[in-house]
Simulated scan of single mutants.
Amino acid sequence: MARIFNSPGKYVQGPDALAELASYAAPLGARTLAIATPAGTERVGGKVRRGFEAAGAELVLEDFGGECCDAEIERLCAVARGAGCDVVAGIGGGKVLDTAKAVAHYLGAPVIVCPTAASSDAPCSALSVIYTADGVFDRYLFLPSNPDVVLMDSTVIAAAPARLMVSGMGDALATYFEAKACVDSEADTCAGGKATAAALALARLCFDTLMADGVKAKVALEAGCLTPAVEHVIEANTLLSGIGFESCGLAAAHAVHNGMTQLPETHAMLHGEKVAFGTLVQLVLENAPTETLEQVLGFCLEVGLPVTLAELGVEDASRERVMAVAEAACAPADTVGNMPFDVTPEMLADAILGADALGRYYALED
């Protein structure tokens, strides 16, 4: 099978980049449907509108309903058709962006994704994660192409709560370990072929960047500063992790995240926070070297990513409940099968409980 490397058509990152959204949308179509949460519109709507007015371009700004589910995607498709929009832009977090990508796909329109936080690696990918209306993971929607433009306004991103950037670090933390597992197993990637050496190198650079600049970036954000470390982590969370996961693949860490949606109390946790714990689970499952486990655990503890089930809101971590997570994570349609060895629900349940025990042990030491 061919080796395939996917990437967005254009990646733009810098201060006040959202003010230029209209200049990137205009070559793609005549009228843009921009999807954002009400809070997102309050934060950046003025900047976006002023850019469209200055460019003489047409904009329809529509509120996001809150969940990337089939009903919301269908509603927004109807809004776009009714308003005659031929470009879709998503402005916000991962679920807004995934919804915008899905809407553009069904309309056959170009899409621009504009994250207001570097909270996940969703922006660059040809993938939308679809949930039920109640927030339970439903399926991956693989799209025929990556976003036409990814626009990262680092001024807006640096002003977001630090927890969102830290969550993005949790999502990015999994990238290299899952990529390596997929390369070792010769698994098919999200891009539809086998991994390239270039994608694996970017996945490794993602991990190295987090280790070098993650703590510095968190401290800077908490002080309200946009420093080079913050810019580096925005790129790692978004571009490096996005290409790394899509062109190499996902494995146990994201499957554990998806399984966690079986526990309603975890729904309040951010995607990357659950993925960070899933990364620890994958490392336990692989029996990773102690040095690697300590490096990852130490990083999580230092930036504030959860390392125990209790930190994910799970007070009742009975084996029965953990088995429900493990069984869901081991579903044939999920990505545990990309590990370079067979994984049973029993093995995964043990790894979840083992990761939780390690997290408690190291948190006490810390």
Rank of each mutant, 00 (worst) to 15 (best):
residue 279 T to I: 13
residue 280 L to D: 00
residue 254 H to A: 14
residue 338 N to Y: 04
residue 125 S to M: 10
residue 267 H to Q: 15
residue 138 D to N: 10
residue 114 C to V: 08
residue 95 K to L: 08
residue 1 M to L: 14
residue 10 K to P: 00
residue 363 A to Q: 15
residue 74 E to P: 00
residue 364 L to N: 10
residue 112 I to M: 06
residue 106 Y to G: 12
residue 113 V to W: 04
residue 16 D to S: 12
residue 135 G to Y: 07
residue 80 A to F: 04
residue 126 A to W: 00
residue 148 D to W: 06
residue 34 A to I: 02
residue 194 K to M: 10
residue 98 D to F: 08
residue 192 G to W: 06
residue 30 A to R: 15
residue 204 R to Q: 14
residue 316 D to N: 15
residue 157 I to T: 05
residue 242 G to L: 10
residue 302 E to C: 10
residue 284 V to F: 08
residue 62 E to F: 00
residue 18 L to W: 07
residue 340 P to T: 11
residue 298 G to H: 00
residue 54 A to T: 09
residue 275 V to N: 03
residue 21 L to A: 11
residue 312 L to G: 12
residue 35 I to Q: 01
residue 286 E to T: 03
residue 84 G to I: 08
residue 32 T to N: 07
residue 80 A to P: 03
residue 37 T to P: 00
residue 39 A to C: 01
residue 241 S to F: 02
residue 59 L to W: 01
residue 180 K to F: 02
residue 105 H to M: 07
residue 49 R to Y: 02
residue 183 V to Y: 09
residue 305 L to G: 07
residue 83 A to R: 12
residue 132 T to N: 11
residue 82 G to K: 06
residue 157 I to W: 06
residue 295 Q to F: 04
residue 209 T to I: 05
residue 101 K to R: 12
residue 323 M to D: 13
residue 138 D to I: 00
residue 198 A to T: 14
residue 60 V to D: 04
residue 243 I to E: 04
residue 34 A to W: 00
residue 47 K to M: 13
residue 207 F to N: 08
residue 165 M to P: 03
residue 143 L to I: 09
residue 36 A to S: 15
residue 252 A to T: 15
residue 128 S to L: 08
residue 238 T to C: 13
residue 330 C to Y: 09
residue 317 A to N: 13
residue 181 A to G: 05
residue 91 I to W: 00
residue 343 V to C: 09
residue 273 E to S: 02
residue 66 G to S: 05
residue 74 E to K: 12
residue 328 A to N: 08
residue 299 F to A: 06
residue 129 V to G: 04
residue 317 A to Q: 12
residue 89 A to Y: 03
residue 223 A to L: 09
residue 230 V to H: 09
residue 249 G to F: 00
residue 196 T to K: 08
residue 35 I to K: 04
residue 245 F to E: 09
residue 54 A to P: 00
